[in-house]
């Protein structure tokens, strides 16, 4: 009996096995949210206790930063309007400005084989598959598996994650690939296929190039740590330190391209109990 259940499970068609997995995930996600919430409150309380002395100073610094950012936003708005006007006059296509959906991280990959996190929002909250996920610091990854109320995110540190990138100083293009986590706990990435003739320096800023269609252009990925020359090949490659602290993130933002998930699709998913 048990062997037959196992055999059936192993040979289930992919959509059916995904539906089963989705249903289990949906059932467990409220409990996961509670647990991660408790963990977050505890870590917040510890941070607050540790930094009690510096709160006033931090508040002053944040107020100054807020004023600076408000001024910058005002200036950028006028520049954006001017830019849109010029693009219209030149007959260029208008750029879509992405919205971002704030999401709480409710868990990590339970098996430890992949670099993934789970978010507490899914297709019901307009989170779709293959959408860029960012934090306040920079690029985090992309959504790979979405159910009604949860979404799995493949982090940029996973070897399966590849991001088309460019170095902001020189404009050199390359592909950023995950390299896992170093023994010190920092996520490691590598930028490959950089033209050998372009000068790349440690500290150079690496941004998303916007090519490939998943990640919008200009999101900060990280900074170049070391550059390696391949004497026999056509390319050079660089170790990248991601800006976002992938091991500690509790809140992220998922890109919403302003194309709400089809109502028909959503209803169908709700009937089926999941969406992948």
């Amino acid at each position: 009996m048990l062997a037959s259940i196992l055999l059936v499970m192993l040979n289930l068609p992919t959509p059916v096995s995904r539906k089963v997995e989705s249903s289990v995930r949906e059932g467990i996600s409220p409990l996961q949210q509670v647990f991660s919430g408790i963990g977050f409150r505890i870590s917040e309380a510890l941070i607050a206790l540790r930094g009690l002395g510096g709160i006033v100073r931090e508040n002053q610094e944040l107020s100054a930063e807020m004023v600076r950012l408000q001024n910058e936003t005002r200036l950028l708005r006028s520049l954006a309007a001017e830019n849109a006007d010029l693009r219209r006059q030149l007959g260029f296509a208008q750029r879509n400005i992405s919205d971002y959906i704030p999401c709480e991280v409710i868990g990590r990959d339970v098996s430890g084989w992949w670099q993934t996190i789970r978010l507490g929002k899914g297709v019901s909250e307009n989170v779709g598959e293959n959408r860029a996920v960012i934090s306040a610091e920079g690029l985090v990854g992309k959504t790979i598996d979405v159910s009604l109320h949860t979404a799995d995110v493949l982090l940029i540190s996973d070897p399966a994650c590849k991001v088309s990138a460019r170095i902001s100083r020189t404009g050199a293009f390359g592909i950023v690939t995950g390299r896992g986590v170093s023994p010190r706990g920092r996520a490691v990435c590598r930028m490959e296929f950089i033209n050998k003739n372009i000068n790349v320096l440690p500290g150079d800023e690496v941004l998303t190039s916007g090519l490939g269609g998943v990640y919008p252009q200009g999101i900060l990925i990280g900074y170049v740590e070391k550059v390696y020359q391949d004497s026999h090949g056509l390319y050079q490659y660089a170790e990248i330190e991601p800006k976002a602290d992938l091991g500690m993130i509790t809140y992220v933002f998922v890109e919403s391209r302003g194309d709400p998930v089809d109502e028909f699709m959503r209803e169908r998913l709700q009937e089926q109990g999941g969406y992948r």
Partner: peptide
């Protein structure tokens, strides 16, 4: 054995492992 089956389903559902691998 049933506990092992259920534990496997839970582990697979909460990760990217295909259904049945952990149960096995």
């Amino acid at each position: 054995l049933y506990a092992a089956l259920l534990a496997g389903i839970l582990q697979d559902a909460l990760s990217m492992i295909p259904l049945g691998f952990s149960s096995f």
